[in-house]
């Protein structure tokens, strides 16, 4: 990620601020910055979303394709995450520079969505053993301004929420060969059941306390972070620790409590934002990156 070296005095100032539960921009430890969300902004994909939080900008596109299921899970569909770090974000992403971070993010996402409680892959099945839908979730990181994981996860959830899978009219087995007919009406589509989709909450340990949604300056002061994926019902589907620092078990359990609380609230916010957008109807103006 974009590394900004800070001086000792700046770090001290940030550290003391977090200690006093008053950060440099006036937020408390559990407060997020304002976000801006837009879905269905691209025509070329089945579902898309763009999220901007602070200076972090993430664009997500979801494409669906018909594929054959894995032999060991014949009744399930497939879900794949791919992250691309644009060199627009930081020059260090040029060439293969962003690959490590991209792999890290896609692994964390895959882990979060792996649990059958979080995402029920059977809803993507068309004909067991023969055909299923495969979701390609492509994530493009356009700008890095701290708190990448949370931003990516929110955008992914919004994009999956907006995804419209073409409706299968009939699927039959014809002499061992699958015969699938899609609906003639391109607007006829099925939506994913997103009720349990998790989001990521990363908690950065700075000093003795943990903060959510750090700016890139605050990220520089942190030695360790815990990324947890929280489902809307408050259950945690995965926990990943990042950074070189270590976390004491008691701190960990306290952090998880805090993360769950924040995660539930954030989930509600996302759902309410998506509902508000739905209310605007089909003829909503697409803003995108302009204006």
């Amino acid at each position: 990620m974009a590394e900004i070296p800070l001086s000792l005095a700046e770090k001290t100032f940030i550290l003391h601020g977090i200690d006093a539960d008053f950060r440099n921009d006036g937020r408390s430890r559990t407060h997020y910055r304002c976000m801006e969300l837009e879905t269905k902004l691209m025509d070329q994909v089945h579902g898309s979303a763009r999220l901007r939080i602070g200076n972090t900008d993430v664009l997500v596109g979801v494409k669906v394709e018909i594929d054959t299921p894995y032999p060991d899970s014949p009744g399930d569909g497939k879900l794949e995450f791919f992250v691309d770090c644009s060199a627009n974000a930081t020059p260090s992403f040029e060439g293969r520079g962003g690959e490590n971070l991209a792999n890290e993010i896609s692994n964390v996402l895959a882990l979060a969505y792996q649990s059958p409680d979080a995402m029920d892959l059977t809803q993507l099945s068309i004909l067991p053993h023969k055909k299923c839908w495969k979701l390609f979730v492509d994530i493009l990181i356009l700008e890095c301004g701290g708190n990448l994981f949370d931003a990516v996860a929110i955008a992914v959830k919004a994009a999956l929420y907006s995804t419209e899978i073409p409706k299968v009219k009939c699927a039959t087995l014809d002499g061992g060969e699958a015969d699938i007919a899609l609906s003639d009406d391109t607007y006829e589509s099925v939506k994913l059941d997103t009720t349990n989709f998790p989001i990521l909450v990363s908690l950065y340990k700075i000093g003795d306390s943990c903060v959510v949604d750090p700016t890139s300056e605050e990220e520089m002061c942190s030695s360790a972070s815990i990324v947890i994926s929280v489902m809307p019902n408050g259950r945690i589907s995965s926990i990943v620790k990042m950074g070189y620092g270590s976390v004491h078990p008691t701190t960990l359990s306290k952090t998880l409590d805090m993360g769950t609380k924040v995660g539930i609230e954030l989930n509600n916010e996302i759902i309410s934002a998506l509902k508000r957008e739905d209310e605007l109807g089909l003829n909503r103006e697409i803003i995108g990156f302009l204006r």
Binding site: C34, L37, L41, A273, L280, E285, I287, R291
Partner: peptide
């Protein structure tokens, strides 16, 4: 009051 805003409400 909303934490997450919509792009249609973006302010110039």
């Amino acid at each position: 009051n909303y934490l997450i805003r919509l792009a249609t409400d973006r302010i110039d």
